[in-house]
Simulated scan of single mutants.
Amino acid sequence: MGSFSIWHWLVVLLIVVLVFGTKKLKNIGSDLGGAVKGFKDGMKDGAASEAATPPTPPAGQVTGNASAEKTTIDVEAKQKS
């Protein structure tokens, strides 16, 4: 009851082709392939740019070095009773 045979899948495929048509399925396939290719290219470009540039701390993050900006004011907020 839980498993599908090859005949079940062929019937489902036939229904999908009849509902959507081969041209629409071809367009969907090419769009999906282009999206996957673009994603892979983006991941390669991102990895290449990360390897090429040294990591820098985000803006506004306090670092442990002496060249940190001295204009930071440390304030502790207290609630009124």
Rank of each mutant, 00 (worst) to 15 (best):
I28R: 01
G33V: 02
P54Q: 14
P54R: 11
M43K: 14
T53K: 15
P57M: 04
G46Q: 02
G42I: 09
D31A: 15
A52H: 12
D31V: 11
S49L: 03
G33I: 07
K37F: 02
D41K: 15
G46T: 02
A48E: 07
I28T: 09
K44Q: 15
G34C: 03
K44E: 15
N27S: 07
K26L: 07
F39N: 09
K40S: 08
G38H: 00
A35G: 04
I28D: 10
M43Q: 13
G34I: 00
G34K: 00
M43S: 07
P57A: 07
A35L: 14
D31G: 13
A52S: 09
G29S: 09
A51G: 09
T53Y: 11
A52D: 14
A35T: 05
V36R: 01
G33S: 14
F39R: 00
K37M: 07
P57T: 06
D31R: 11
L32W: 14
G42N: 12
D41A: 12
A47S: 13
K44R: 12
A51W: 05
D31Y: 14
E50M: 15
K26M: 06
S49M: 04
A51P: 03
P54T: 04
T56I: 13
T53G: 13
F39G: 06
P55G: 03
G46P: 01
I28C: 10
S49R: 13
G34S: 05
T56R: 15
A47V: 07
S49P: 00
P55I: 08
P55L: 08
G42Y: 13
